[in-house]
Design a protein around this nucleic acid. Structure first.
Lengths: 212, 212
DNA sequence: AATTAATTTTGCAGGACATGCAACAATTGA
DNA sequence: TCAATTGTTGCATGTCCTGCAAAATTAATT
C-alpha cells in the first residue's frame, strides 16, 4: 500500500489525497477535539468532496488511526523462519516488528500528533489494534512456518500447530501493545523500536524467571 | 451490574429491559444478518421506544457484544494476591478469569448465538475486546498488588512495577483472546473455562521450553 | 492525435445513527 | 396521598454512510 514502485500518476494522486485526508483530520482533531470534527470539515480542508472521503476511509476514526503495518520483505521472513530452534523466538519476532515499523516511517510531527490523540481516546487505540486483523493473520502465517520448521513433530499435527501459532501471535501482539503504551506514556524521549525490543525482552524474562 | 442484591422493582425492570434488548438484537441478527437490523426493529421487538434503546446502549453493536466480565469477589482476589511467589502466576490468573466467567453465566443458547455472530463479524469481536478497558484496568490493579507482594524490590520501583503489571495484563488478555478464539472454533463441544485453563497452560509451556 | 477503456471524483437522494431537550409516566419513600 | 427521584417517550436536529449515475481524469490503443 505504501509501495512507491507503481509511480503512475493515478497512484501518486491517490496516495497524495490519502495523506491530505490524514493530515487534515489530525490537524482538526488536534486543534478542536475529535468530537467537534465532521467529515464535511475534513473534506473542505483536504480539498475534496465529502463523498470522496468515503472512497478512502469508512469513517473519520479510520482516517485518524493511521496505516496498518506490513511485514518486512521475503528475505527477512525466510531468515526468521529458518533461524533454527536455538534462536530466541521472541527476539526474532521483535526484530520482524522493528523492521516493519521502520518500513513505513512517516513524518515525526504526524506521529506525535496521532500519539497524542490516541492517548486522549483509548477507544480509538483499541480500534486501531482491532483493525490489524490482516497483519495479525500475516504474522500468524509466518509463525506457523517457523514453528513447523522448529518442531517437525508439531508440524505433523495441524490443529495443535495452528493453536500454538495463534497463541504466539496473540502474545506478540500483547507485547506490541505494551510497546505502544509505554511509548505513548513517554515524553517523546525514546523511539518506538527501542520500546519494542524492551517489551519483548521483558516478556522473555517474565516466565523464565519462574523456574529459578 | 449483574448483582441481584438490589431487588427493587426499578432495578428488576431495568435489567429485564436490558435483557430484552440483548435477546432482540441477537435474534434479529441471527435470522437476517446484522447489517439488515435497525435500531427501530430492535426497539419494536423489545417493546420499547427507539429513544429508550439509547438509554441502554450506545449502539446496536454494543447491545450485541454482551456484558463485560467482572473480577471475582474480594476474598478470591486476596487469595490470589497473597499466593506467594512460588505459586504459578499464570495458573492463578487463569483461575481468576474462570471464576469471573462463571460469575455471569447466561443462557446457553444466547451464548451460542452470540458466538456465531461474533464469528461472522471479526470487527465486533475486536470491539468487544476494546470495550474491556475497565476490566483490563481492574485486572492490572490486582496484578500490581500481586507483583508487589511477590517482589518487594520491584515494589520499590513504581515505574517498573507498573510496566511489568501492564505487560502481564496484556499477555493475560492475549491468552483470554486465544481461549475465546479456540472456543469459537470448536463445535460447541467443550466449555469456556476448560479453554481458558488450556490456553494459559500452553502459554506457560511456551517459554519454559525455551530453556531445555 | 484521436478514440476508447478504465478509474476516480462528485452531487444527490435517502436511510440510519445518535444526542439534547422537555414533557410525561412510573417507582420510591415519607 | 404527596413529593422526590428515576425512567420513558416523542420531537427536532445534525451527522454518518451508502448506492447510483453523470462528469471528469488518467491510461491504453491505434
Amino acid at each position: 500500500m505504501t509501495d512507491v514502485t507503481d509511480v503512475g500518476l493515478r497512484e501518486r494522486k491517490r496516495l497524495a489525497t490519502r495523506r491530505a485526508i490524514q493530515v487534515a483530520v489530525l490537524n482538526l482533531a488536534t486543534e478542536r477535539g475529535l468530537d467537534r470534527v465532521t467529515v464535511d470539515e475534513i473534506s473542505r480542508v483536504a480539498d475534496i468532496s465529502p463523498r470522496t472521503f468515503f472512497n478512502y476511509f469508512a469513517s473519520k476514526e479510520e482516517a485518524l488511526a493511521g496505516d496498518n503495518p506490513e511485514l518486512p520483505g521475503e528475505e527477512a521472513i525466510n531468515v526468521f523462519v529458518n533461524a533454527g530452534r536455538d534462536a530466541d523466538l521472541l527476539a526474532g519476532i521483535a526484530e520482524l516488528l522493528v523492521e516493519s515499523s521502520e518500513h513505513s516511517v512517516e513524518d515525526y510531527r504526524v506521529s506525535l500528533q496521532r500519539r497524542a490523540i490516541l492517548k486522549q481516546h483509548p477507544q480509538l487505540f483499541a480500534m486501531r489494534m482491532a483493525s490489524m486483523h490482516q497483519f495479525e493473520d500475516e504474522l500468524d502465517a509466518v509463525l506457523t512456518r517457523r514453528l513447523a520448521v522448529d518442531d517437525p513433530i508439531l508440524a505433523a499435527n495441524p490443529v495443535e500447530l495452528s493453536r500454538k501459532s495463534r497463541l504466539v501471535t496473540f502474545v506478540a501482539f500483547a507485547a506490541m501493545r505494551h510497546a505502544w503504551a509505554t511509548w505513548g506514556d513517554s515524553d517523546a524521549g525514546t523511539d518506538f523500536p527501542e520500546r519494542l525490543r524492551s517489551s519483548f525482552a521483558c516478556l522473555g524474562l517474565l516466565f523464565t524467571k519462574a523456574d529459578a
